[in-house]
Amino acid sequence: MSLRYKSAEESRVVISELMLPSHSNFSGKIHGGYVLSLLDQIAFACASKHSRAYCVTASVDTVDFLNPIEVGELVTMRASINYVGRTSMVVGIRVEAENIQTGIVKHCNSSYFTMVARDDEGKGIEVDGLLLENTTEIKRFLKAVKRIEMKRKRREEFDREDFVPEDYLSDLENYKVKVTCTDEL
């Protein structure tokens, strides 16, 4: 089978939903958990559209809540494939809320979901490649690569068997912590 390439546009998904009082938290803002649920749904739709397969959420690398969403605002989520690996895809999602009375639009959230394509037996399947058609898409792809590299380096540094906390105590001096570790240091 020859490798096929798709543009980000071919897999892009946009959804809009009016925010209702039932979606709000105790402070009257839209509950972050509700927004996360919507983010997961659109990430699934975008990744499945790109891979033409069932996809599962492998990780949520970043969820930045930038501005609160109010009851009565129209929320629009735009999802696109930012990166593809062998079986995985990073879906970038931008969330905007519009006050439908004033027309004012605000950027409320940016998120990056790593999705993995699966076959009927639950095994990972290879996904189509990604055409990078403009500078923005090149930057998005490279930023995803950097996030993946940083995540791998963090794991290698802190999850290794020979981790030595003493090597990092000076790094903690500028933080609001007091080390009372009873393990052997």
Rank of each mutant, 00 (worst) to 15 (best):
V56Q: 07
L36P: 05
E17Y: 08
L185D: 07
A58N: 07
R118H: 03
P68N: 02
L185A: 05
E9N: 02
Y54N: 11
Y112S: 07
S51D: 06
E156P: 06
R86P: 00
A79N: 01
F113Q: 05
F158R: 13
S48H: 06
T76E: 02
E133I: 12
G103T: 08
V13W: 00
L74S: 11
K6H: 04
E98A: 09
H31S: 08
R94L: 07
R140M: 13
D128N: 15
E98D: 09
R12I: 01
V164A: 15
S88G: 04
A58H: 06
A53I: 03
F26D: 08
E17H: 14
F65E: 01
S48T: 12
D162M: 10
S51G: 15
N82L: 00
G85K: 00
G124H: 05
V56F: 05
S16V: 05
D64C: 04
T114C: 08
K123Q: 08
D119N: 12
A47V: 10
E137Y: 06
S7G: 05
L74E: 07
G28E: 07
K29S: 13
P165Y: 05
S7T: 10
S111T: 15
L66K: 09
R155V: 07
I138H: 12
V60N: 12
T182H: 05
V60P: 07
